Computed example of a mutant assay.
Amino acid sequence: MTILVTGAAGFIGAHVCQALAAAGQAVVGLDNYNDYYDPQIKRDRVAALCPQVDIRVLDLTDRSGLDALFEEVAPSAVIHLAAQAGVRYSLENPQAYVDSNLTGFVNILELCRHRGVGHLVYASSSSVYGDSATPPFSEDQRIDRPRSLYAATKAANELMAYTYAQLFGLKATGLRFFTVYGPWGRPDMAPLLFSRAVLAGRPIQVFNEGRMQRDFTHVSDIVAGILGALSHPSTETIAHQVFNLGNHTPIELEHFIGVIEAAAGVAARKVYKPMQPGDMVRTMADTRRAEQAFGYAPSTPIEVGLPPVVAWCREYFGQAV
């Protein structure tokens, strides 16, 4: 019984591989190690978190390569985390999102269907809520007014997975992640951007004049949610389900920065900016559905989870923060 993890060298993927391997699961990963951010961070992340996991270098658009991998590995389940990430980058390079998040997702659906995969767990995003949602965001709210192409591709993934569940009986679970942070995180996201800048004495850009809230969720809580969802596929006739995975506690951006300042021992140099295109002012997860389905219970406040991120940045990047 082998679990295939896509995006295995990514921030969440490597932590998931680490947890599965620690639990004694047979795991195979794939990742294309693209240059959206420095691939060396991905290689170092794998070496630190899951060096024992077999991770193949493969792109989601390589249908023949994926087919050969599925034939060789015969996964019983797939945790699909690979995608082109980033809201703002989707304004600059939309084709990357079409290739990875649409074409690549269809390739995964097709292979799961034809290779008899028992359960597909895939990454969606809190960004699907867009302009339609009223906090706290619940899975029953509309997701048809996205604020970015990235969000639109993630909403499309949910529709595609539902269709395959309806037509072909593929058990599929979508997980809407809310602003995940932790050591070995993505360097393009606020936790690392702010931590590195504060440590180096560089100014940070604070958008919407600081009037923003985010449901920051520690990676350990996200991993627990992924593994919980994996072991609880839908039992409905159309076996597709969607869950929020967040901390259900939105944090003021100024408080978030304050925790970083305290951990770094340095005051932030703030440059206030207007709202960025594609961003959302506030995110907040209603996690009751995940709690009822598999006992999801996030337990890491930023006051506990964020200082180790600052310490990791200081250690990993050194003088190059």
Rank of each mutant, 00 (worst) to 15 (best):
228 G>V: 05
224 A>G: 15
233 P>N: 03
246 G>A: 03
240 H>R: 08
237 T>F: 10
245 L>E: 00
203 P>Q: 04
250 P>F: 09
205 Q>S: 15
249 T>W: 00
224 A>L: 10
216 F>Y: 10
237 T>M: 12
240 H>W: 07
219 V>K: 07
211 R>S: 14
247 N>T: 06
209 E>F: 15
211 R>M: 13
222 I>D: 03
208 N>K: 14
199 L>M: 10
211 R>V: 14
250 P>L: 12
227 L>C: 08
206 V>H: 01
232 H>E: 05
228 G>A: 09
205 Q>H: 14
212 M>P: 03
234 S>T: 02
218 H>P: 08
230 L>P: 03
203 P>T: 11
206 V>W: 00
207 F>I: 12
218 H>G: 07
237 T>V: 15
229 A>E: 10
211 R>A: 15
205 Q>R: 15
235 T>H: 09
236 E>Y: 00
200 A>I: 02
203 P>R: 07
245 L>P: 00
247 N>E: 04
248 H>P: 08
221 D>P: 04
211 R>W: 08
240 H>Y: 13
212 M>V: 15
201 G>V: 13
231 S>E: 06
226 I>V: 14
225 G>P: 00
225 G>F: 00
220 S>P: 03
204 I>R: 03
208 N>I: 14
202 R>E: 10
234 S>K: 01
220 S>Q: 11
236 E>V: 09
238 I>H: 09
235 T>S: 12
247 N>Q: 12
204 I>T: 06
214 R>P: 07
205 Q>A: 15
211 R>C: 13
201 G>L: 13
233 P>S: 07
204 I>M: 05
215 D>I: 02
249 T>M: 04
214 R>S: 10
227 L>K: 07
208 N>F: 14
249 T>Y: 04
222 I>Q: 00
240 H>C: 14
246 G>Q: 01
209 E>W: 12
230 L>K: 08
239 A>P: 10
229 A>P: 11
200 A>L: 06
216 F>I: 05
232 H>Q: 11
229 A>W: 08
239 A>D: 02
233 P>E: 01
244 N>P: 06
217 T>W: 09
228 G>L: 03
231 S>Y: 01
215 D>M: 06
244 N>D: 01
219 V>S: 09
232 H>A: 14
244 N>C: 05
213 Q>T: 12
207 F>E: 13
223 V>F: 03
248 H>W: 02
250 P>R: 12
236 E>T: 14
241 Q>I: 01
242 V>E: 07
221 D>V: 01
248 H>G: 03
205 Q>T: 15
226 I>N: 06
236 E>Q: 12
220 S>L: 08
209 E>M: 13
201 G>C: 13
249 T>R: 10
206 V>S: 05
210 G>T: 09
206 V>C: 04
214 R>D: 02
251 I>N: 02
233 P>M: 02
238 I>T: 14
246 G>H: 00
215 D>P: 05
250 P>T: 12
224 A>I: 08
211 R>Q: 14
227 L>G: 10
236 E>R: 09
202 R>Y: 08
205 Q>P: 10
220 S>A: 14
210 G>M: 05
207 F>K: 03
205 Q>G: 15
